[in-house]
Design a protein around this nucleic acid. Structure first.
Length: 278
DNA sequence: ACGAGGTCCTGCGAGC
DNA sequence: TGCTCGCAGGACCTCG
């Protein structure tokens, strides 16, 4: 499921392959992914437009167009955006939501099995209000431990829920929240405002480390996620807790526990390394 | 202000 | 074999 490292991987793959290219013959197969834009306006805007930049914001792909519009794609659970240089196979075309030809050859395809993902077409004004509602980027060079403590502070919410709240912090989802809390040896259910300064500082470092290591590994492929060239990521081999409920902790050997007590989402942790729920 | 719960969507695996 | 059911879950919404 694309979180920050997966979307960053896609962006790094697509940037050299899309920037400067002309979009031709766009086709929308599943209009139910569109938000606040009609099928007609989307296709008319894309057709003949040029890609001026490819960026990431939080877990969203941002394709900037020469017209000044931004095509914003939230892949959510099962979305992927891939550039193909050769003819698409039937399997690659299956679940295609939006696709377009590229001037000079090739196709760019947004595919989404469950279609929980969404597509927006924003002008400058729409983009400003969109991005202002999202929290700071955890890997930005000016995002320091003070800022992290400030963003996590002042709430009794479980620290894991606060980490995943996109208004507080951009791009962290269930996989990397679980991993960062395990590394920092912090109980995911503890209220954010009860963490000591030293614990938050530790968590800040581990959030950034785990995100950077996952980017280096091209992301985590559990099922549907693919890079911008259609490959699987490899961070799933390095996960310490996510998806390992019932298996032994790699640090102490205790059985990892999975609960759904925090916001109804699967939380896997080591009761020994991360402390009993309190 | 906050928490709980519903909604979207399809594939998959368990159970009968 | 073929069916139903619950679950996966990020973001957004309503309700109390």
């Amino acid at each position: 499921m694309p979180e920050l490292p997966e979307v960053e991987t896609i962006v790094r793959d697509l940037r050299p392959r899309l920037t400067g290219r002309k979009l031709t013959n766009p086709r929308l197969h599943r209009p139910d992914v569109l938000r606040k834009v009609s099928r007609q306006r989307l296709l008319r805007t894309l057709d003949g437009n040029h890609v001026s930049a490819v960026d990431r914001r939080a877990k969203h792909l941002v394709v900037r167009l020469a017209s000044g519009h931004r095509l914003v794609i939230q892949p959510r659970m099962t979305g992927s955006l891939v550039v193909y240089e050769t003819r698409l196979t039937a399997e690659q075309r299956r679940y295609a939501v939006l696709e377009a030809g590229l001037g000079g050859g090739g196709r760019v395809v947004y595919r989404d099995v469950r279609r929980l993902g969404t597509i927006w077409l924003l002008d400058e004004r729409g983009w400003q209000s969109y991005t202002l509602r999202i929290g700071p980027e955890p890997l930005a060079t000016d995002f320091d431990a003070d800022r992290f403590r400030h963003q996590m502070g002042g709430t009794r919410q479980a620290i894991k829920k606060a980490l995943m709240d996109q208004r507080r912090l951009a791009g962290v989802g269930n996989i990397y929240a679980n991993e960062a809390l395990f590394r920092a040896q912090i109980d995911p259910s503890r209220p954010a405002n009860r963490l000591a300064r030293a614990e938050l500082d530790r968590l800040y470092g581990h959030v950034r480390d785990v995100l950077e290591e996952a980017i280096a590994a091209q992301g985590t492929t559990v099922r549907d996620y693919r890079t911008g060239t259609g490959q699987s990521g490899s961070y799933q081999d390095l996960l310490q807790v996510y998806g390992r409920g019932g298996e032994p902790c790699r640090r102490c050997g205790a059985r990892l526990v999975t609960t759904h007590e925090i916001d109804g989402r699967a939380t896997t942790f080591c009761w020994h390394c991360q402390g009993m729920p309190r």
